[in-house]
Write a protein that binds this DNA or RNA. Structure first.
Lengths: 224, 224
DNA sequence: GACTTAATAATACGCCTGCATTAGAGTTTG
DNA sequence: CAAACTCTAATGCAGGCGTATTATTAAGTC
């Protein structure tokens, strides 16, 4: 955390981190596509205009670096919670807890945690265009493990036809992104606990008669 | 819908609409802040670079025009559903229905409906920066009427302390924005019906013991 | 038909953009 | 020491940006 940060070259890691932090701030505030690379350089205190290009190359790689940095915190936490779940047994709320809490802890992370959450919230809704950050979710990540585990706790049709787990994940990041946007976040524990309640309620949402009818009878398809 | 579109001056309304449609497409695809005004002009077939400025002035005003255009469709539908709800009586699902269906009908609207939904989804999460579209929600809109009505159907604490109605609205637009992004949208009725189920489940989500404890006892606030 | 106004077009300004190229500090390694 | 390497810096380029200014065209009004 002091000056040369260790690895040998002058301030390489240091500069890299400055760039990442600058990008976090600007991306989260203005949107990923609405910030120029030069802006990021400037905001990082880099007098040079090429530093970003040198260290990351493209905007997409920079986004990927931001995500990787924070996921290094989130992943082990979720894996630990899922380990505990598998060992001790638990209910649906315990699973919702394992989904929510590791990401929600980023709300209290002073080092770009909220920026990360807002960036993720944008990516959840726009995973397509100028990014291809190689992928927002690669295999063997904890969230896939969570998806597999939760499949046993909700109706098969809700998994296969209604994609409810994906809704839960999207909603999680949307709500966290919104919360991260709020400058004053009082009642943190209450917020998190309630978010767990919401996610659990979504996963366990009863299928209404009308939905069930539509699921079964494929014949009718008149209008909206 | 033919050429001069009515009002007198040459092709004013016509050009205005072309610009709006072009902006809808580009905003929804790349993000509101990531599209230049010149791009929009070009995409609208305007050889001139000033048309947009002439008709709208700022980017924010353009966004507001897009929203206004589509809300003209949505608002009466929701008001009608709420009228029916108040006249006939109804349950929580009927209220969720009134929230969801008018917006969801934009999914089948060929004239920019999906673009509108994706733009709204962005605004829901980034109502701040370069926009100030005078406001995403002004009084006496149907969504406020909905908020007032639904307050009687969910626990008072869920309204006052947990802001659950706002979560429901955010989640609605997030899920619709995601759906609007999908080029092939099969099972439209099923999707909408399930979304109504989800929103109803969110509104009716039980408050867990832990959340209740946090709601009551304010004394404890150790850590996340 | 002259006058006013609405709408489109054309062009020019200065600034910023991404990107390529080159040079120059400072370390590491042989 | 000197060569190799890593990183930062500086500058230039062609193009895009938002915006201001002005001209042109067409319709409405008296």
């Amino acid at each position: 955390m002091s000056e040369p940060a260790g690895n040998g070259r002058r301030g390489s890691e240091d500069t890299r981190l400055k760039l990442i932090r600058a990008a976090e701030e600007l991306f989260s505030e203005y949107g990923i596509g609405a910030v120029s690379l030069r802006q990021i350089n400037r905001h990082a205190g880099q007098r040079n205009a090429t530093a970003l290009q040198y260290h990351f190359g493209t905007r997409g790689a920079l986004v990927a670096a931001i995500l990787a940095r924070h996921r290094a915190d989130v992943e082990p936490r979720r894996h630990a919670l899922l380990d505990r779940f598998e060992a001790d047994g638990g209910d649906l709320r315990a699973l919702a807890f394992a989904l929510v809490v590791p990401e929600a802890s980023k709300l209290t992370d002073r080092d770009g945690g909220c920026a990360y959450l807002r960036i993720i919230a944008e990516l959840v809704q726009r995973p397509d265009r100028p990014l291809d950050p190689s992928d927002p979710e690669s295999p063997q990540e904890s969230i896939h493990r969570w998806r597999r585990l939760v499949a046993d706790w909700i109706p098969e049709l809700a998994v296969r036809r209604l994609h409810r787990r994906f809704s839960a994940i999207r909603i999680l990041f949307t709500e966290l992104g919104r919360r991260a946007q709020d400058p004053e976040r009082r009642d943190h524990e209450l917020f998190v606990s309630h978010l767990v309640d919401l996610i659990a309620a979504i996963l366990a949402a009863p299928v209404s008669e009308e939905t069930e009818r539509l699921l079964k009878g494929r014949r009718r398809g008149s209008r909206a």
